[in-house]
Every structure is written in structure tokens, then in C-alpha cells.
Design a protein around this nucleic acid. Structure first.
Lengths: 237, 237
DNA sequence: GCGCCCAACATTGTCGACAATTATTACCAA
DNA sequence: TTGGTAATAATTGTCGACAATGTTGGGCGC
């Protein structure tokens, strides 16, 4: 029952920001479409005040663009933006891996090994179940990020970049065709962290993300027709 | 008595965000102090609506923290935050240098060489004029960032991180005690970019920033007494 | 005196209405 | 028909007021 007001947060503005983010990522708000404040306010049953605050937040998340006296639009999907985002992710998560190697607790590392074992078992049993494989992948990255203990980094990756990456994933054919390869890379990264080799951990994480970026890019270019269509029929109004 | 609206932007909210950012960075708003919406609104002569939108923006810039139904506070200066920020900056500007080495135009590189020459001449003439040396430093970094042509990176570094870094600079004793060393490092970085050696450019940029971070950290720890005082007399109210 | 509870106050969150700006439409001329 | 222009409609920006939540201070019981 995700539909109408799923979670009751402290403030309407926060709620809205969350719901709108979800709506954009899930595609129920067409990419590139104009956002009408009165319409949205009516649809969510709130006044324009909190809505506008939510829009300001979404703008700084990079999910919408706003121009003064004109209005807001949902962002468009562009390959160049995707590559830009992944370059940043490569740099930042690489740094996260380095810092995790320096400051992650031993028991956390052990827990991560268990996570990877579970993932391995899952792959052996079910031949390829992309969805959970995907969530397992995210879990690994999440824990590395957390392990960096760099608060600024955690916030940036989890709040600012996360939605964007989700958005691109959601709008391209599910890309993660080689879960076993990904798992091997995860294991190598974790080994480096366990050995407290920050340089190596960073290097491996960067290669890992760079590889994923290339796969995503290829997938996106192949179905660029789809993107064209979806961004075109919704570009105006 | 703030200067009364020096620049007139398109929207009050944007104006406010800019002025408040400046006020925080310059220190006319005490670090850690509580922000009263009615008071600020009265001081700037606006209603609470645009003010709140500006506050949402400042929050996502990391300059203030907000808690629902309680209010907003200016952030506090913490050494750990400084180090976190500089770790991110190291990763991101390193990536910027790499991408600049790949995609910067030749004439831009030549212009950068001229900039460094000017800087050199300036240092030879005036023994040590920190302020302009500082602005020259920033100019160099700005151009590298721009040269990366990574829009996401440019926005993040120039808008999100810039204010934070300025804030830390402003609240610690001016740290840049070795402008000649910095200039040498800039020159090495630029050489790497001119030779299209992305790996080297990234490595040098990271070392350069890491060094600056350590200097800043040392300066901050030395005058931690000052920080204690300033954050204490303004903590409540 | 000390701690708890309740009432008065202040601050934040939300709303509806008005002002300012932009988009649209109708109309006229070439 | 086409282009430009003026009037109209719609949307965004801003404001003041009300509702809801937090905070503070005084009084009461122990």
C-alpha cells in the first residue's frame, strides 16, 4: 500500500520530498515533464508551501531543474550525465574503500564476509535472480560506505547520488549481467580491506565501479531509442 | 545592520540563500547559534516563506542543520568534518584533474600556464601577499575543475563544497604559509595535464590537496582554543 | 528545598489569498 | 496565411494569519 501517504513523517515537506523522489525514480513522473505546482499540490492534498520546500530539496538532489518564474521540470536522462555521475561515484567510493580499510572494525569485516558467502550460496542455488542479486550488491556498497566513517561522504553518496543512480538503473534495462564477476570483485575488495591495504582497496573499488559504468553505458546506448521515445512524448507538458 | 540587499536576483529565496551563505561564511552569523525564523525574516525584510525555502537550500549545502518543529542551527566547526570534507575534495578534484587531462583544450592549458607565470611574478615582486596568493590559488583550482567538463562535478565542488571550505578557511588563521611550494605543485599538475597524463595529474592533485589538508588541520588544532571559545559563547541562543 | 505537572508563551509548520511574471490567445495588418 | 501585438489567462513568487508542536516558568505535593 505504497500509494497514498505511506509513511507519516514529522513534516509534510519531508514526506513530499520522499514521495516525489520515489515517483520520479519509479517513473510515475515522466522524465522531462513540466511540474505544475497547483496540480501536484492538489494531487497530494497539501498546500503549495510545503510542496515548494520539497521542490527546493529535489532541485539540490539534482532530480528536477527549476527556473525562476517559469517552473520546474523533471530532469532528462542523458548519457553524459550518467558518465559524470559514475565518475564521481568512482572517485568517492574509491575513497570510501580506502578509508574503510583504515577504520573498519574487524567484526564488521567478518560480517561482510558472511554477506558475501550468503550471496555466493544464493547464486549457486538460483541460477540468476537479478533482483535480489542487485539488492545484495547495494548492500555491499552501502556497508563499505558506512565503514568509511566519513559522515560527509556517507551523506553525499546515500542521499544525493543514490536517487540519481537508482533513476538511471530503473530507466535502463536491468544491467548486472554478470553477478558472479561482481561477486569476485567484491571479494577482492573485501580482502584488501581486511588486509588493511587502503591503496589496493581503492584501486579495486574504482575498477569495479568503472566496469559497472561501462556496462550501464553500453546498455543505455543500445536502448537509446527507448530513451528518445520516453523523453520525447513527455517533453512538452 | 547587514548591507541592505546589495544584489537583486530573480527571486527573494535565491537572494536570501546567497546572503545567508555569505553571512555564515564571513562569521556574522555565529557558528552553532540558533536561527530564529521570525527574527531573520524581520532583519532581511521578507516573509517567512522565501526564508524557509532558503533555509532548505542551506541545509542541503550543509551550512545549517534543521530539526522538525525545533528549528535550525548554524553548523559547528569540527576537525573531523574538516578532514571528511578534504578527503572528498581530494577524491573529487583528483578525478577532475584526470578528466581535465583528457578533455581540456590546448588554449585553455596555455592560459593556465600564463596564470601561473603571473602568479610567479607576483611572488617574486611582493614577498608574501597572502590574500591575492590565495585568490590565485583558487583560480587555478577553479579552472581545473571547469576543465574536467564534468557538469555534476563542477556543480558539487563549486556550489556544495565551496562554501564549506571557505568557511573553514575563514575561521582558521589564514593557512597557506608556503605559496611557493603550492605554485611548484600547481606547475607539476599542469605539466601532467599538458602531457595528457591523466593518472599522474590525478596523483599530483591528490597529494597537493592532501598536503593542504594537513596544514589546515594543524592550524585548526593549534587554535582549537579559539574554536572552543567561539563555539561555546554562542552555543545556546 | 527538590522534583513533577500543568498552563502560558514562543516558535515552527501549514494554509489560503494576493501580487508579479510568464504563457496563451485573439485580433489586426501586411 | 503569416507575423506581430495587445489583452487575457494561468502559473509562480510572496505575504500574513492560523494550527500544531516545543519550550518555559510557576505552583503544587512530597
Amino acid at each position: 500500500m505504497e500509494n497514498v501517504t505511506p509513511i507519516k513523517s514529522a513534516t509534510l515537506s519531508d514526506d513530499l520530498a520522499q514521495q516525489l523522489t520515489q515517483a520520479i525514480v519509479e517513473g510515475s513522473m515522466a522524465l522531462g515533464s513540466k511540474i505544475s505546482e497547483p496540480e501536484l499540490a492538489k494531487r497530494y492534498g497539501v498546500s503549495r508551501g510545503p510542496l515548494r520546500e520539497a521542490l527546493v530539496k529535489l532541485e539540490s538532489l539534482g532530480l528536477i531543474t527549476r527556473t525562476a518564474n517559469v517552473g520546474a521540470r523533471v530532469i532528462d536522462l542523458k548519457v553524459s550525465d550518467l558518465m559524470d555521475t559514475f565518475a564521481m561515484r568512482e572517485a568517492l567510493e574509491g575513497m570510501a574503500a580506502r578509508q574503510a580499510a583504515e577504520s573498519m572494525a574487524d567484526e564488521e569485516i567478518q560480517a561482510l564476509y558472511r554477506l558475501l558467502d550468503d550471496h555466493q550460496m544464493f547464486l549457486d542455488n538460483n541460477q540468476d535472480e537479478h533482483y535480489t542479486s542487485q539488492s545484495g550488491n547495494e548492500d555491499f556498497h552501502q556497508r563499505i560506505i558506512q565503514g568509511s566513517q566519513n559522515q560527509k561522504l556517507i551523506r553525499l553518496l546515500n542521499q544525493d547520488l543514490y536517487a540519481t543512480i537508482q533513476l538511471y538503473r530503473r530507466h535502463t534495462a536491468d544491467s548486472r549481467p554478470e553477478p558472479r564477476q561482481a561477486l569476485r570483485e567484491h571479494k577482492a575488495i573485501l580482502d584488501a580491506i581486511a588486509n588493511r591495504e587502503g591503496d589496493l582497496a581503492e584501486l579495486l573499488m574504482r575498477r569495479h565501479i568503472s566496469r559497472a559504468a561501462n556496462l550501464l553505458k553500453k546498455a543505455m546506448l543500445q536502448e537509446s531509442v527507448v530513451n528518445e521515445k520516453s523523453s520525447r512524448h513527455s517533453a512538452q507538458k
